[in-house]
Write a protein that binds this DNA or RNA. Structure first.
Length: 1135
RNA sequence: AGAUCCGUAGCUCAGCCUGGUUAGAGCACUACACUGAUAAUGUAGGGGUCAGCAGUUCAAAUCUGCUCGGGUCUACCA
């Protein structure tokens, strides 16, 4: 393989096209990688486009602390392909790489490695030391990533990547945050967040979505009874009761609200009951199923059947006793949730710690223990009444705040009850400490409620509940301070801008992303971690003054003022050499407020997703540097990542762009699906079904892998990855293309074809050349349209079909003789030029998908022809379709020819006559003049291909063939409607005479169900059914009949052809060169002598023989057999 | 729980948007051919309740609804 030296050679008429020993894709690729490296081919692909319209692409930063997997290869193939395509289309496509370096996975990896937990940070290891470890860990696998990037042929600038932990990067983040702060979009609030008491840490949504965090668990659930206070507000309920008093009912009837919970431990923190304003509720009279006393309860009407058996409805209350299974019940009244708003109830678990006095102390002025209304209430579970503990649920918190019911957090951060809760004090609400004899406090709570006539139903309930993926313990929702971005403020704008984005597939944008935007909540930015971007907010201890820092310069200025006013030593921390905008250093900086008070940084870090979403700005250190570069590269024309990034990177990019710049961040977004194993299972290390991309590329080649990933399924469908599929691509597509190239170079080298002659004008080229060129340009048109539409799968499949079906199996097969026979003159040159153009164009078309193979072969071709001055296929322009070369009729009739040949060959097969045996005639009914004209133009080609002497056409009006008519359903269906069935049946029954009349008149009157129907000839399809006495085959409208009579003349020619075939085999077996002349001696060919003599000239021409002699006998010749005649031949190379 | 994608031959996928009467390809399998591209190619064959049910329609793989199965994402599942 020496193609890469071509650049150093001047063009040379004697230069040969490189011929290969075999197809070894991985070997190709190694050569090409070296070539690209030596020649800076990637860099030049950008610099050569200086001044061209930019096509802006953003690289989503991978995290380099894990190994790259095969799923990374698919999205990167997609990205690379688009960028290469756009480059070839004339755009300048810069691709700045990047690394995501902050965040939880990195921290956890480090903790695992060091064998520590979060609590140890700052104790066993200093924050400084810990962050240093993180910084070392983030780029642990960078080499592997760089390696796969290179080997898969992903062109991205790895020399100057953006790295999210750099001060410059963080400075841009701070600037963005300060912009948000100025707009009032950055605020602090208590929020209810997932929290792991076992680990003592809040959990990010990321952590909550680790595989296996949601587990099905059985919890003790309890329908608690909250006793309504009788007052003016509730009197209307009590009045319903009094009218239905019965004998056994106490004079002071009790009335309860039923509320369900799967977390009874939250009940001591209860402060409200929430009802749906539009939900129907009923007041039901019944008995307590445990204590059997009289009860009156309120619950949602829909849920009555869940708690009351139909048999008990309006049952006999007086006859009830405890042994009875059927509990009688009766609906006394019905009302909307809204009618109950403001009703009060008695606290369920009154203790010291949650006493009204305590509530008043925590939240002065709060009015707890009331009925509230909330839209989130459903009647799918529970009772339609939601027990509301503001501390332990986000909905609860929100509705609680709205009604000012206060907040009680009766559980501490270790997950145990506070003091002052009676027998429950200091008990863990779940078994967080792996205590052997842990008694579930939820059960005890439920038992207590039962005993006190406060539980209506207690049972185990199975549901999926989030667990801390590190400790495997259930999380709880817990109130924590957090900073938010008020994304809800610009929700409508985000929705509006989203509609301008070209999503591939559209459903990701409209459905998944659109819905997400519709249900937007404010972005919780806070993370209580160590390794990440610090929130740049400093404030006084009293929290009455705060500042958001937007640049390093501002921080230095503020720092210097503090140094002056407070005598701090910020200057040391902020010096150029020492500056590090991470913990713990930033936390050591003390600023000064306008009142002269010290301000400390709030301890929070920000969500890492903000890091990546800010990359359009931060990668250029905007606005501190590169203002122009940024302007030219925002927003992106194109991004692509896995669909799992919809709520990740796609969202954060969109949100920040909308918030700060009132713009989209990207115009087109391609989201690819997952890569599953070949059985459709998700790849995971645990299952051991992960595919190693290094091995795949090493074994099978990047090009075949890329081609497979692109063409096997649309990128957004989940793909079942199977290496056998890559092997198929290798064999089928690359093998065929390679063979075609080898075929071309074999003969082009023999004839010295180097495209030095002027192109043969199209009109002078034979039909088949014009056809393949027409098909080629049609292909270019379609492929370009698909590529522009980000539908590479469609484009790739079309190319595959062209290479395999059209170019290789039709054009080359039919044209073989033109390359090896005859002189080097116009027809042959036309063939070379045509095939050359096809190859060259295909290689340019596939270059974005399979960059290596196309580079190698393109350069091989170009090294000889010198048609392009560019040194890489990736620098040349993408082929442009030339409409004047497209001839639709020509393409149509070639399809017709292919069909005719296929039918004739199948007939030959049926009667067992070899293709080498010539036959006299094929009969084809020409159903209309157009069809006949089309067939006549390709007659010669058909005759040669199927080895028949003549083609005879049967005119439309001949009486010879039997015809068949079929309704044209599309045309007739609309016209006839319900009569369709009857008419189509009638048409199918037409006699030959009826058909003939129909064809003659052009229309036909039919009587269907007594009603006349006039059929036009265009409303039916005619085909020939049979030609009596002939062997026929048909496909659609096309029918062919083959004359299978073998005359002695034909047999004789057949013998001659067989003989040629045998001699050719001997030539080949003897390793003769294509051009070697031979002498042939034959003996024992008595039965064939006449045939061979008759076709001697033909035979000699075919086998390049100077003589063909018949001898009485031959010793040591080769014994061959032709049509049951055996003969002995000697084939000698001359000279 | 919600959203979304997917379900067509043993396997990988077309076809569905825009309904039309024998549902196609490739791989694999079987048989027979062909052979100066040969680790290729051709022809033929077997192989399908188009996940299921219901509806709309003269006509449904195709449109609608529901159900089931698989994947993913999301979740404030009380």
């Amino acid at each position: 393989m020496d193609f890469h030296t071509f650049a150093n050679l001047s063009r040379n008429m004697n230069k040969k096209y490189h011929e290969y020993e075999g197809l070894d894709l991985p070997a190709f690729e190694k050569e090409i990688l070296k070539y690209w490296g030596d020649n800076q081919t990637f860099e030049k692909s950008i610099s050569l486009r200086a001044g061209a319209t930019p096509f802006v692409f953003y690289e989503g930063p991978p995290s380099a602390n894990g190994m790259p997997g095969i799923h990374h290869v698919i999205s990167r193939t997609l990205k690379d392909m688009v960028c290469r395509y756009k480059t070839m289309q004339g755009f300048q496509v810069k691709r700045k790489g990047g690394w995501d370096t902050h965040g939880l996975p990195i921290e956890l990896g480090v903790e695992k490695e060091l064998g520590i937990t979060k609590e140890d940070i700052g104790k066993k290891i200093s924050v400084e030391e810990y962050n240093k470890k993180c910084r070392e860990a983030v780029l642990r696998y960078k080499d592997k990533w760089d390696d796969i990037t290179r080997k898969m042929g992903y062109w991205v600038d790895l020399n100057d990547p953006y790295i999210t932990f750099k001060n410059e990067y963080i400075e841009t983040l701070w600037w963005l945050l300060s912009e948000l702060y100025k707009k009032g979009y950055l605020y602090e609030s208590v929020s209810i967040q997932p929290y792991s008491p076992a680990a003592g840490t809040g959990l990010s949504s990321h952590e909550l979505n680790q595989p296996g965090t949601y587990k099905d668990v059985k919890d003790t659930s309890c329908v608690a009874m909250f006793k309504a206070v009788r007052n003016d507000r509730s009197e209307f309920l009590y009045s319903k009761l009094l009218t239905s008093l019965s004998g056994r009912q106490a004079p002071n009837p009790e009335l309860f609200f039923l509320a369900w919970t799967t977390t009874p431990w939250t009940l001591p923190s209860n402060l409200g009951l929430t009802l749906g304003p539009n939900i129907d509720y009923v007041l039901v009279k019944t008995f307590n199923p445990y204590l059997h006393n009289h009860l009156n309860v309120v619950l949602a009407k829909n849920l009555v059947p869940k708690y009351f058996k139909e048999e008990g409805k309006d049952g006999d209350f007086d006859a009830y006793d405890e042994k009875q299974k059927i509990v009688p019940w009766k609906i006394l009244a019905e009302f909307k949730g809204s009618e109950l708003e403001g009703c009060e109830y008695e606290q369920l678990f009154p203790y010291e710690a949650n006493s009204p006095a305590a509530i008043e102390e925590i939240t002065p002025g709060a009015k707890p223990f009331r009925v509230l209304l909330g839209d989130f209430v459903t009647t799918e579970d529970g009772t339609g009444i939601v027990h509301t503990a503001p501390a332990f649920g986000a909905d609860d918190y929100r509705v609680g705040k709205k009604y000012n019911i206060g907040i009680l957090t009766m559980v501490d951060r270790q997950g145990k009850f506070l003091d002052g809760l009676g027998e429950f004090s200091n008990r863990y609400v779940k078994n967080y400490k792996d205590e052997k004899d842990y008694v579930d406090v939820n059960v005890d709570i439920s038992v207590k409620l039962k005993k006190e006539n406060r539980a209506f139903k207690v049972e185990k309930y199975e549901h999926s509940y989030p667990h801390c993926w590190r400790t495997d313990k259930p999380i709880l929702y817990y109130p924590l301070d957090a900073w938010f971005i008020k994304t809800t403020a610009i929700k409508d704008r985000m929705v509006e801008l989203n509609k301008t984005i070209n999503w591939k597939p559209a459903s990701t944008g409209e459905g998944r992303f659109g819905n997400w935007l519709e249900n937007l909540v404010d972005w919780n930015l806070s993370r209580s971690r160590y390794w990440g971007t610090p929130l740049p907010i400093w404030r006084t201890e009293e929290r009455d003054e705060q500042i958001c820092i937007g640049s390093i310069e501002q921080l230095r200025n503020e720092g210097a003022e503090a140094d002056k006013a407070l005598g701090t030593d910020n200057a040391a921390i902020l010096s150029d050499e020492k500056l590090d905008l991470h913990k713990p250093f930033v936390d050591d900086i003390i600023l000064v407020s306008s009142k002269g008070l010290p301000m400390k940084r709030v301890p929070d870090l920000i969500d890492v997703w903000f890091d990546s979403g800010a990359m359009p700005y931060a990668q250029w250190h905007f606005p501190f540097e590169n203002r122009e570069t940024f302007k030219e590269s925002f927003p992106a024309d194109f991004i692509a990542e896995g669909v799992d990034q919809t709520r990740g990177w796609f969202y954060t990019l969109h949100a920040i762009a909308c918030l700060v710049f009132d713009s989209v961040a990207y115009k087109t977004c391609v989201s690819n699906g997952l890569v599953l194993d070949k059985n459709g299972n998700k790849m995971s290390k645990r299952l051991g079904n992960v595919v190693d991309p290094f091995k795949t590329i090493e074994d099978l080649g990047a090009d075949a892998t890329r081609w497979y990933l692109i063409t096997n399924a649309s990128p957004w469908d989940n793909m079942k990855f199977d290496v056998d599929g890559i092997k198929e691509v290798q064999r089928k597509f690359f093998g065929t293309l390679y063979n075609t190239y080898q075929f071309f170079s074999l003969y082009a080298n023999v004839d010295g074809f180097s495209f030095k002659e002027a192109p043969v004008p199209l009109e002078k080229r034979p039909e088949i050349d014009r056809w393949i060129l027409s098909s080629l340009h049609t292909l270019i048109q379609k492929v370009t349209a698909h590529m522009d539409d980000y539908e590479p799968t469609q484009a790739g499949r079309l190319i595959e079909d062209f290479v395999d079906e059209q170019l290789s199996n039709w054009y080359v097969r039919l044209c073989r003789r033109r390359f090896w026979k005859g002189e080097y003159e116009e027809d042959k040159i036309s063939a070379y030029q045509t095939l050359y153009e096809c190859l060259e164009t295909i290689l340019r078309l596939v270059a974005p998908v399979s960059p290596f193979f196309s580079e190698a072969l393109f350069n091989n071709l170009n090294a000889v022809s010198g048609r392009f001055k560019e040194e890489s296929v990736h620098h040349v322009s993408y082929p442009k379709a030339n409409a004047s070369m497209i001839d639709v009729l020509l393409e149509e009739r070639m399809r017709l020819a292919q069909d005719v040949c296929s039918l004739v060959l199948s007939l030959r097969k049926k009667v067992n006559i070899k293709v080498r045996q010539p036959l006299q005639k094929v009969l084809i009914p020409a159903l209309d003049p157009q069809m006949k004209a089309q067939l006549q133009k390709i007659e010669e080609l058909i005759r040669a291909e199927v080895n028949v002497k003549e083609i005879e056409y049967l005119e439309p009006d001949n009486q010879f063939i039997r015809k068949k008519m079929k309704a044209n359903f599309i045309a007739l269906g609309k016209k006839l409607g319900p009569k369709m069935k009857a008419v189509s049946a009638a048409i199918a029954e037409f006699t030959q005479e009826q058909i003939a009349n129909f064809e003659k008149d052009g229309q036909y009157n039919l009587l269907v169900d007594g009603e006349p129907v006039i059929l036009q000839i265009s409303e039916v399809e005619t085909s020939s059914e049979d030609i009596p006495g002939w062997t026929v085959a048909s496909k659609g409208r096309l029918t062919v009949a083959l004359d299978i009579t073998l005359t002695p003349e034909l047999e004789s020619e057949g013998n001659a052809r067989e003989f040629v075939n045998r001699i050719q085999k001997i030539r080949k077996d003897s390793d003769f060169d294509l051009t070697d002349r031979i002498e042939v001696k034959v003996s024992g060919a008595e039965g064939l002598k006449e045939s061979l003599a008759q076709f001697k000239d033909y035979i000699c021409a075919e086998i390049l023989a100077d003589s063909l002699d018949f001898l009485p006998s031959i010793k040591e010749g080769t014994l061959i057999d032709i049509n049951d005649n055996s003969l002995n031949v000697i084939v000698l190379k001359k000279g």
